[in-house]
Each structure stands twice: as C-alpha cells, then as structure tokens.
C-alpha cells in the first residue's frame, strides 16, 4: 500500500523531475523517502533499469541506501485508539520508556535534544525540529545544524482494518557520519537496518496494550 495524498503525489512528481545525482538532489531524495513507497521506488529507479513500481513501501526495497542515506522503518498494529497512541508519542519524554537507547530527552518548543547511548560508553546528541504535527495522524521531524547525526523521520498513525486498533508506521532516514562517530552510529543502528526500530515498536505495543514490557528477568537486580 502507498498512503499518499494528492498533495504528496504532486510533490513527489515535482521532486522526481528535480532529482539528479548530487548534493541538492540528495536532500530532495531524502524528503521523497519519507513521503511513501512509490516515490522512494522512483528515486531508486533512476539508477536502475525501469520497471513498473510495485505497491510495497520504499523501505522494503532490495536496495536500502538512497544516495548517502540509509532508510529504516517498521509498522506495528496496536490495539488502542489512534489518538491515545499519538498523545503518548507526542509527549517525547515517554519515548525513553520503550526506546532502549534513549538516555534523555529535552524538549523546548519545536526543538528536541536527544541523548542516545551508544556502545562502549559513548553517547550521541541528536537535535531535531518538528516539521509536521497532525494530531492523531502524524509527527515528522528533521535534524538541525546542531545535531551530530543528519537524520529525518516520521511516525504515522492510521486506523487498522477490522477494529484491530491503530497501525503505527515509522520511517527513519539517516546519513551515517564519517570516522569514529560513524562507526558508533553504525553499531547503534546495528547491521540489519531496522533492528532497533523493530524492537522499540514491539515494546511500545507491549506497554500500550498490557501496561508493561515483557521481561524474563526473575529479579529486579538481575
């Protein structure tokens, strides 16, 4: 499925015309990735022989790099109303309850500063600005100049069919930095793209459906 509005579709078509290899185009490409599957496919399609685009989300493409950007994403269905999940997420201080590697979150206005723990005692500061906020539907963010990682992402909420609750869909694109920091970030996101996203969304589902996060720990100190 692709979930594009008419407006998004028009933007995608425009961007497709503009997209050429090179720095400026990459920025456009990144925007495209977050718009939805088809657009990302078409961006990817410019480097490959043309085939008709299929209906799958762009992040499931066989090639997962788009220019300098790596894209990861995941969907989960949560048996709770759309608005409840949006509200929970929109209070960013809640995110550290289910996202394993968030050390701290400070939000002031549209700007949020995230300290993300990385292996071997490292920490990475990510600063983001909210670029879209539609209550009950979507929250999108993009990193600012102050951020140590160049990243962009969004979370979308829509009613699941058959009264199954809400489909929560996240897409995150990031450009792995060079050097030491790059290596840290690579381990942070782990080899397989989406491992963190997948685990995090499962924990979110547990928390919102059952009120707790499953663990096999037998003791509080263990």
């Amino acid at each position: 499925m692709t979930y594009r509005t008419f407006e998004e579709d028009r933007r995608a078509r425009r961007a497709r015309h503009a997209a050429q290899p090179g720095g400026a185009a990459l920025a456009v490409g990144l925007g495209l990735l977050l718009l939805g599957g088809l657009a990302a496919r078409q961006y990817a399609g410019q480097q490959a022989p043309r085939r008709p685009a299929d209906s799958a989300p762009g992040r499931t493409a066989r090639r997962r790099r788009f220019g300098d950007y790596a894209v990861t994403g995941r969907s989960v269905t949560i048996n709770r109303p759309r608005r409840d999940i949006y509200d929970f997420w929109r209070d960013f201080s809640n995110l550290s309850k289910f996202m394993e590697n968030i050390e701290s979150v400070h939000a002031s206005g549209d700007i949020t500063r995230w300290t993300i723990s990385a292996p071997m005692g490292h920490a990475v500061d990510v600063v983001t600005r909210i670029v879209s906020d539609r209550p009950g539907e979507e929250i999108a963010w993009r990193s600012t100049e102050d951020s140590e990682i160049d990243t962009e992402g969004k979370v979308m909420f829509r009613d699941a069919p058959g009264a199954r609750g809400t489909v929560v869909e996240t897409v995150i694109a990031y450009r792995p930095p060079m050097g030491e920091l790059g290596r840290i970030v690579a381990t942070l996101f782990q080899d397989e793209p989406g491992v963190q996203a997948r685990r995090n969304l499962k924990r979110l589902k547990m928390l919102l459906e059952t009120g707790e996060i499953a663990t096999n720990r037998n003791r509080n100190d263990g």
């Binding site: 199954r164 685990r199 995090n200 547990m206 996060i213 499953a214 663990t215």
Partner: peptide, 26 residues
C-alpha cells in the same frame, strides 16, 4: 499470554504478541 493483544482476544493464547521479550523475538 497477555489477554489483550489481537491473538489473545481471539483466544489464540499461544500466539500472544506481547509475552516474548522484544530482543528474544529476534
């Protein structure tokens, strides 16, 4: 079984979504 996920609601208790810790699900 959590009793609250889609599968538990359908009484497919051994298919509970929420009882296996996230990192073990991998």
């Amino acid at each position: 079984s959590c009793g609250q996920c889609f599968h538990c609601k359908m009484q497919q208790f051994s298919a509970c979504d929420n009882s296996n810790p996230a990192e073990k699900q991998d």
